[in-house]
């Protein structure tokens, strides 16, 4: 089976700082993979390298067998790579419905002239997008906020908007950067449920960064542990949990739950 996403020997320097070193990753369709590691290990940087925010100094990245290294972020996104951000990155003057509609950008074909003159093609596509947006709102349980400005929503709901928005780009693989950061235990349980549901309903692969072990162990089939930009251990949840290096480098310092 060919991997959906493949990263080969990726290395990246920020000036003199080596943030990521000889990183390899292979994710199959529908697989859920976790990336753990202490703060500053380079986890978010790996996300940014794969999604094209930065171009890696060395290495190769392919999505469905196609090279995506060096492409613009929006091109990579429209090839099927959706993501959320560690610190919410929402559009502060926009309502929730428009957030979801906006993420359909690459699926529109009516063009600027269509928008200027509100052509039938424009109206048809916009109403299709709206329909799909409402479906997502319902699925993520945020329909009641459709016309609210994003900043007025509770934190947990904002997180769900971000996920719904990522799903609106119609991704084959979804990157989640600490999806439960700052959440209450209730919201956390809801988030696990939502991720499971997304995984089933949309047939996506998921790659997630997470701090809370319980969350990672419960969801992921495969886990990588990153320390100082290098993977020190990878494998199935049980292996990672029992790996002495991991316990020393990471788990030992933190509460395991």
């Amino acid at each position: 089976m060919t991997a959906l996403l493949n990263v080969n020997q990726m290395t990246h320097y920020f000036g003199g700082l080596r943030a990521v070193h000889n990183y390899n990753l292979s994710i199959n369709p529908k697989q859920i993979t976790g990336l753990i590691g202490p703060n500053g290990a380079g986890k978010t940087t790996i996300f940014n390298l794969i999604t094209g925010v930065y171009t890696p100094t060395e290495g190769a990245i392919t999505l469905s067998g196609e090279n995506i290294k060096g492409l613009e972020t929006n091109e990579i996104a429209s090839k099927g790579l959706g993501r959320t951000f560690q610190n919410l990155a929402l559009w502060r003057h926009m309502n929730v419905l428009d957030h979801i509609k906006m993420a359909h950008y690459s699926q529109l074909s009516y063009g600027l002239l269509g928008a200027f003159f509100n052509t039938p093609a424009c109206r048809r596509q916009e109403s299709e997008v709206e329909e799909n947006a409402y479906r997502l709102l319902e699925l993520f349980d945020i329909k009641q906020y459709a016309f609210d400005i994003i900043t007025s929503l509770p934190y947990g709901a904002q997180r769900r908007v971000e996920m719904a928005r990522a799903m609106a780009t119609n991704p084959k693989i979804l990157f989640l950067d600490e999806p439960t950061a700052g959440m209450t235990p209730d919201e956390l349980i809801q988030m696990i449920k939502i991720i499971r549901q997304v995984h089933q309903d949309f047939n996506v692969a998921i790659f997630l960064i997470e701090h809370r072990m319980k969350f990672v162990m419960e969801l992921c089939e495969f886990i990588q542990t990153l320390v100082f930009g290098e993977v020190i251990a990878e494998g199935e949840p049980e292996e990672i949990q029992n790996n002495p290096e991991v316990i020393e480098a990471y788990l030992g310092k933190e509460d395991l739950t």
């Binding site: 925010v53 996104a77 950008y105």
Partner: peptide, 26 residues
Amino acid sequence: NFVTSILGKALNAVRDDEAASESMTV
């Protein structure tokens, strides 16, 4: 017409968060 279409609202998205817009295919 323009500013109420998705293509036009992309202006707002880029204004409010450029990185998020790129990641959302804009």
